[in-house]
Amino acid sequence: MAHDLRGAAAVVGVGLTPFGNLPGKTPFEVTAEAIHNALADAGLKKDQVDGFFTSGMGHVFHGLQAVEYFGLNPKVVDSTNIGGSSFVNCLQSAAMAIKTGACEVALIAYGSTARSNPRGGPGGGSGPNAYNPHESEYKPRNPVVSYALAAARHMHEYGTTREHLAEVAVAARRWAQKNPRAEMRDPLSVEDVLNSRMICDPFTKLDCCLVSDGGAAAILVSAERAKDFPAKPVYLLGVGSAITHEQIAQMPDLTVTAAAQSGPRAFEMAGVGRC
């Protein structure tokens, strides 16, 4: 039997901002542009939004402050912060809220100034070295060193090489070269990656993810309503979550991420067999 959430909700509007370096802006200012663009894409006014799904680093009461800033009055809010997967979590929460009738128009939005304002300040950026009571006192250069520890363990267990790891950055760059919004689009070789400055062994600067300012927003409605919107709807067929740990030393197995659980859940919901 098909999962209740399969195809229950669809994205009917998407909004993006420029990405890269957006100095002089707050995260909410960046997010506002994304929300404006998503509403315009869907042909909706903000007062039609009755569900709001967001997350961020700079505000203690993020959901409250974001609702206030954007002048929303939602019936449902989820501002759970579970790191980089927060917005997949938002997608799942939005679909559940739509399916149960808790809301009809769900807005998912995020904006960051982590690049131009990494330490926060007024309006908040996103601090990469948030306080972990049993790790921060060792001054780990997070998030890089946590991924470096996982990579070192993977190399130890599977014989993975520096060249194998560098291929990840090279592949990402090839995708960037096809993306007009991407910031770094020059050719990149495995040698370039290996020869750049070491940051946290085994990762060099060019192994590391670019930190970018930018924002994005999406609007979901029920499958029944989706047909009434100007853009072709994108139906949510499968979504999955799994949460295990925050501090890297607490990760049950450094070579197996929680995606090994969430991925199969999403495929199962969608009714898509894994190859």
Binding site: Y138, K139, V145, A150, A152, R197, C200, D201
Partner: peptide, 19 residues
């Protein structure tokens, strides 16, 4: 697992981070 956080000498130099 183990890594080295690389720092210039004037910023305290390299140090180990391990699990």
């Amino acid at each position: 697992s183990t890594s080295v956080v690389r720092n210039r000498p004037e910023q305290g130099g390299n140090f180990n981070i391990a699990i």
